[in-house]
């Protein structure tokens, strides 16, 4: 009888341990696969370019209210994308700068420089 009670208790403990591991595993798995799933499924509120290297050319309009984006083969690294201004907004020259950004919808782009986040429209 004593043995049966102990086995039942051990089984319960094992169940709780498994549940805890499963919950922790969920947090870890979701963290590890944030990027992959953003790209692979495209169903989330947020998507991040991550699983492939892309070179993006971002063309701003004169009033900076919109921009055109072109994906141009693989040159950048994960999440760090080389964005080439074809025309500088103020000087009219071509410059290269590094931006980090996050795609949030079908056509919207979050770009981050420092602490500042702003949105731009793009089309492939």
């Amino acid at each position: 009888m004593e043995n049966k009670k102990r086995i039942t208790k051990l089984l319960l403990i094992l169940l709780v341990v498994c549940l805890v591991i499963a919950v922790l595993g969920y947090f870890f798995y979701t963290f590890l696969h944030t990027n992959d799933r953003g790209i692979a499924e495209g169903k989330f509120a947020g998507k991040l370019f991550a699983s492939e290297d892309v070179n993006i050319i971002l063309e701003f309009s004169d009033d900076v209210s919109s921009a055109q984006l072109r994906l141009n083969g693989a040159t950048g690294t994960v999440q760090q994308l080389n964005i080439t201004y074809e025309e500088n907004l103020f000087t009219g020259t071509t410059e290269t700068e590094t931006y980090y950004f996050l795609v949030l919808g079908e056509n919207s782009l979050y770009s981050s420089t420092g602490n500042y986040l702003y949105t731009a429209q793009y089309s492939k």
Binding site: T30, T34, R37, L48, Q79, L102, Y110, S112
Partner: peptide
């Protein structure tokens, strides 16, 4: 980038 990624993680 990590900051952005963590934001995304929080949302997901």
């Amino acid at each position: 980038v990590m900051k952005i990624r963590l934001q995304l993680y929080g949302k997901m």
